[in-house]
């Protein structure tokens, strides 16, 4: 077992261990905090696929996070008002079922990623960063000025969406559900990274010219990674809406896009468990520093600056040393 594998195992066990102790100590708020970390980790895991594995610095993943959130919000709000979503040409009812919210949000985000990717993947470098940012802002302003689902005020949900066989309103079952989804997503990314597609994606990041020489076009590889990445982030957005029982345009704000990148970097770019490490660290800092001072973001800024300037491998790079392969 390499140091990184051991560290990954420890990271995977740390969150459930924390939740178990919070459960014993009867601190439901801490369980909710851990759930928040797990959901942000899932969103960042999605981003890591594009950013870490594909080298695509997307500054617009909040759009996909928000689309996932609004999929849950819109479907659930129609279910709680007993109004149909659409009557013609055929009837669509709202629903509370997570098993419907997830695919709807993921497919919607995948379609949005197809369009955004088709335009932004024609460019690279700074253009790509700015264009993804601009498109995310477009969704953000659309959500603000679209009055049907709360507009600027957001959309409150009275209940958490349902999952067969569990009471999702209880903190512990909801955390378990989120955590299982997160581990499945990390495992999926690990499989993807080791697959032929993953190797092509790493190639597209490192030397696109060689990839072309090997007979693979980088555009298709990057596009696929971008779409899958958006879908994972949308899944996180859907869970985030359920966690807060509230959806608002701020889920799509560029601050969130920035925070997702920060999570990936704090943990370590391109590391499988980097986003989880980053999210745990970030939520912990937010909770502890937020309790000490109102100006905690000042110190997050300083920390981030230090990580960028002096500790480029992030937390996992610091603890596990240089990357061995890929």
């Amino acid at each position: 077992m390499t140091r990184e594998t051991a560290l990954n195992l420890a990271l995977a066990l740390a969150l459930p261990a924390f939740v178990a102790s919070a459960y014993v100590a009867e601190e439901p708020f801490l369980i909710t905090l851990a759930t928040r970390a797990a959901i942000l980790a899932l969103a960042a895991t999605g981003l890591n696929l594009a950013l870490g594995f594909g080298g695509l610095v997307s500054f617009g993943h909040a759009a996909f996070f928000g689309i996932g959130g609004y999929a849950t919000g819109i479907l659930a709000s129609h279910a709680q008002d007993y109004t149909p979503l659409m009557e013609s040409p055929f009837l669509i009812e709202g629903t509370q079922a997570m098993l419907i919210h997830w695919p709807v949000g993921m497919i919607a985000a995948g379609c949005a990623a197809l369009v955004i990717g088709a335009l932004s993947l024609r460019t690279s470098g700074v253009y790509f960063i700015m264009i993804t940012l601009a498109f995310a802002q477009m969704f953000y302003y659309f959500a603000i000025s679209w009055p049907a689902y709360g507009g600027e005020d957001g959309l409150p949900l009275y209940l958490r969406s349902s999952f067969p066989g569990m009471n999702t309103l209880q903190p512990l079952p909801f955390f378990t559900l989120v955590f299982v989804v997160l581990i499945l997503a990390i495992g999926f990314c690990g499989m993807l990274s080791a697959s032929r597609f993953g190797l092509a994606l790493h190639g597209a990041r490192q030397t696109p010219a060689r990839l072309v020489a090997a007979g693979i076009g980088p555009f298709g590889v990057r596009m696929t990674a971008f779409v899958i990445s958006a879908m994972l982030t949308a899944l996180a957005g859907s869970l985030f809406a359920d966690l807060n029982r509230f959806v608002s345009p701020s889920m799509m704000s560029w601050h969130l896009s920035g925070e997702l990148i920060v999570l990936v970097i704090l943990g370590g770019v391109g590391r499988l468990f980097g986003p989880l490490a980053g999210a745990m660290l970030y939520v912990a800092i937010e909770h502890v520093a937020g309790g000490l001072t109102d100006h905690w973001q000042f110190f997050v800024g300083l920390l981030l600056l230090a990580v960028v300037l002096f500790a480029r491998g992030g937390l996992i790079g610091l603890l596990a040393g240089e990357r061995g392969h890929v």
């Binding site: 610095v57 500054f59 960063i129 920035g258 990148i261 920060v262 970097i265 973001q297 000042f298 997050v300 800024g301 300083l302 981030l304 600056l305 990580v307 960028v308 300037l309």
Partner: peptide, 9 residues
Amino acid sequence: VLATFALIL
């Protein structure tokens, strides 16, 4: 991007 994002904060 990250360093200047940190500067914004």
